[in-house]
Design a protein around this nucleic acid. Structure first.
Length: 753
DNA sequence: CCCGGTAAACTTTTT
DNA sequence: GTTTACCGGG
């Protein structure tokens, strides 16, 4: 029987709390929540613990501002993800705040730059490059500047550039170091940004950075924005990075009406430059500011909350903070020790069936994991069991190859400078313009001082190519010109012309791989999305100000699409189980939560295991995962898992040790007909098969025996202590990696190696 | 230029 | 196990 623990709809409690403030806006709010809603002008920081009713406070506060006469166009609410923005926009709209602007930092800046980027020399129809586009460009630049791409991957350089920009740094910083990648970054930094500007493009980081630069260098423009948005609200403040914080300060300098809401324990984006430090700086920069703490949890059972609090209590770098709840204890957490990943997913299916039999709606069940690749096994089991589900995130619809190709076509229509997009489609579908032909075209473009698109558009410049290539070029020029004309009638029209004149569908469905059949569906989906966009009333754009030109047409569509994630794609049909990474789960809540893959090296990730700070972030991630659950939580781990092609022995996550023992009980499905080892290690639950003395003798080259695989030789060692692992090449050629302490390897005599 | 083969590397997390 | 890079024959 599900425990009802959401205090949202209990009027009796509300009337007691309401006290002197007899006003529907303060209905069902506790004292702290009320003070946050009632706060007048000036800076405020709301430290909102998990499940403490943050969203309600924010939306009620907006409602109050509106009711007390603040024009809705003067309120700007910044969120972190599109999903959060959409949800908040929806709620605010219900309150009558039609013109309250709710957006992510990125989409807001993208929008502002469309209008004001020209001050810095950017076209209003600039392209927004995603990571793929960025890396394509970096790869080109590496070739041009003699950086060996076989040694360093473009993505590595791109990531470093991005990290620097997120911290508002340039490559002259000492923080960059001096390894191969750092040197490449120094060499390519300026060319990269020059080229980006030349092709009229910005990457995700530029959206923020360039807008910040604009505010800095054009005080009059900055003043215009400050006057327009007199109330600024920033959600998930703990996840803002340096640049975002600088933006906030420019848009709403002290002692402005800046309201930030956050929870330091849920800071999980440091890899993207998020600085929890911003919370401390806010107190200093906006002193004196009102600080409100929301410490009453209305979401989870007391048991779940206690489990989560105990885990997070292991973090050393932490403000003292505790959450209370009046909710009932509820069930214990369940722990499932699986032999394999397959068995783990079987248990998940099993548990879902159990919940469904109890009458639980499937959309109240979520499965979380640390990284996307873990979803595969679970997905497979759900599929075979016929459990309907969706995967939130993962490869975005708009990152699919066929979609990116078509969007690249649209981009070159709107932004003729965009050589990266042009190079992408110049031979897609194949029209006889390969690498060498493209190089010739680039030469022409360079000597003429033109973009590729302009060269293609001018038949007089086609002389560089002959035969097949030249014919193909003429066809491409024709297709683009027709599409350009069609674009005047809308996105759909442009797409149809592109598809028809290039024969793209035929091309995309004959790659000869498994996805051939789904590609056509994807293209159809893109078309219906385009139609929907074409048909949408300009007012449907929650970000359009009254009187502001509507964001329509192909350019508008591209901008809209560039910042979308699959997490934003609409709810499918009917309630389905939700699968997602823990990151994607932030801000959501479900009655029943399952967390899979709780193993050392997976969650916490092996990349974080040797770094105290990174490990604390993993722990916050675990805290976020647990606090999503309202009623029950099941935590599972497998003892063996396929990781990057090899079967690894896994140990249970250290987070299990951090849960109070009475919070959690083993989950024992009746279908499992065997038991894992009886003789279990107290902490880990698994048999220790190699004693520490033996363990110390394991060296590269030593021969070992494994029950199942026979004898072999250790070829590589990794990790220390209890996480020490060895790669063993067996005599039959198979290679496996083991956690020594648990793998059951026997040391053989030194065989004269 | 294109397609097929085989080798090699590889999996955090997101706007 | 999966995706990408590179190479050689049509």
């Amino acid at each position: 029987m599900p425990v009802q623990c959401n205090a949202v709809e209990v009027p009796a409690v509300a009337s007691m709390l309401r006290g002197s403030m007899s006003d529907p806006i303060y209905d069902d709010l506790n004292e702290q929540q009320q003070s946050a809603v009632a706060h007048g002008s000036g800076p405020m920081m709301v430290l909102a613990g998990a499940g403490s009713g943050k969203t309600r406070v924010v939306t009620r506060r907006i409602a109050r501002l509106l009711r007390d006469g603040t024009p809705s166009g003067a309120i700007l609410a910044m969120t972190f993800t599109n999903k959060a923005a959409g949800e908040m926009a929806h709620r605010v709209q219900q309150l009558g705040g039609d013109y309250v602007r709710v957006a992510t930092f990125h989409s807001a800046c993208a929008r502002f730059l469309r209008r004001d980027g020209h001050h810095l020399g950017y076209p209003s129809d600039y392209s927004i490059y995603d990571v793929q586009d960025r890396d394509t460009l970096i790869k080109e630049l590496m070739a041009e500047h003699g950086v060996r791409s076989s040694q360093i991957k473009p993505a590595a350089i791109g990531n470093v550039i991005s990290r620097l920009k997120n911290a508002a740094l340039a490559p002259d910083t000492t923080a960059l170091g001096d390894d191969d990648i750092a040197q490449a970054v120094r060499k390519l930094w300026t060319p990269y940004h020059e080229r980006m500007k030349q092709v009229g493009a910005m990457d995700f980081d530029d959206l923020l950075l360039v807008f910040l630069q604009l505010l800095r260098e054009f005080p009059a423009v900055a003043e215009r924005y400050r006057e327009r948005f007199r109330y600024l609200l920033v959600d998930e403040f703990q996840d803002t990075n340096r640049v975002q914080y600088d933006l906030m300060k420019r848009l709403c300098p002290p002692p402005g009406n800046l309201c930030v809401v956050g929870d330091p324990d849920q800071s999980i984006y440091s890899f993207r430059g998020a600085e929890v430090r911003n919370i401390l700086e806010f107190e200093r920069d906006y002193d004196p500011c009102t600080i409100v703490r929301l410490e009453q949890n209305y979401r989870s059972t007391a048991t779940i909350l206690r489990a989560a609090e105990n885990v997070i209590a292991n973090n050393r770098q932490r403000l003292d903070k505790r959450l209370r709840t009046d909710n009932p204890d509820g069930d214990q957490l369940r722990r499932f020790r699986a032999a394999t990943a397959t068995e783990e997913s079987a248990a998940i299916v099993d548990r879902i069936a159990e919940l469904r039999d109890d009458g639980v709606e499937l959309d109240q069940i979520a499965v979380f994991y640390r990284a996307h690749w873990l979803s595969r096994a679970i997905e497979q089991s759900l599929k075979t069991a016929g459990v309907p589900y969706t995967i939130v995130g993962g490869q975005t619809f708009f990152e699919r190859r066929e979609i990116k190709d078509l969007l690249a076509y649209l981009r070159v229509l709107v932004n003729p400078l965009d050589d990266v997009s042009m190079a992408r489609i110049v031979n897609v579908p194949p029209r006889g313009i390969g690498k060498t032909s493209l190089e010739k075209l680039r030469q022409v473009a360079f000597s003429e001082g033109m973009s590729l698109r302009e060269v293609v558009a001018d038949p007089a410049l086609h002389g560089a190519l002959t035969g097949k290539g030249r014919k193909g070029l003429a066809e491409l020029a024709d297709a683009l010109e027709r599409a350009r004309v069609a674009a005047g009638y809308g996105v759909h029209a442009a797409l149809e012309v592109i598809l028809k004149t290039t024969g793209y569908v035929q091309h995309a469905t004959t790659f000869g791989d498994a996805e051939d059949s789904t590609r056509e569906d994807n293209i159809k989906e893109l078309i219906s999305d385009a139609i929907e966009f074409d048909d949408a009333e300009p007012e449907d754009d929650p970000f359009a100000a009254p009187g502001e030109e509507p964001q329509a047409g192909v350019a508008g569509y591209l901008q809209h699409v560039a910042l979308l994630t699959s997490a934003d794609s609409g709810e499918g049909d009917g309630p389905v189980v939700q699968l997602m990474t823990v990151h994607a789960a932030k801000g959501l809540e479900f009655d029943h939560v399952m967390i899979a893959g709780l193993e050392e090296g997976v969650f916490p990730s092996f990349r974080s295991i040797d770094d105290a700070d990174a490990l604390e972030e993993e722990r916050r991630l675990c805290y976020v995962a647990l606090t999503r659950a309202r009623v029950t939580a099941m935590l599972s781990h497998a003892r063996e898992r396929m990781v990057a092609g090899s079967l690894d022995s896994m140990r249970p996550s250290r987070f299990f040790k951090e849960l109070p023992k009475d919070c959690i009980a083993d989950y024992a499905p009746t279908w499992r007909r065997y038991e894992l080892d009886d003789d279990v290690d107290h902490d880990t639950g698994w048999t220790v098969t190699m004693d520490p003395e033996q363990l110390a003798n394991v060296r590269v080259g030593v021969r070992v025996r494994h029950q199942e695989y026979g004898s072999g030789q250790v070829t590589r060692l990794a990790g220390r202590g209890i996480s020490a692992r060895a790669v063993v090449r067996f005599d039959d050629g198979r290679e496996r990696e083991f956690v020594l302490e648990y793998a059951g390897l026997d040391l053989l005599e030194d065989s004269g190696f």
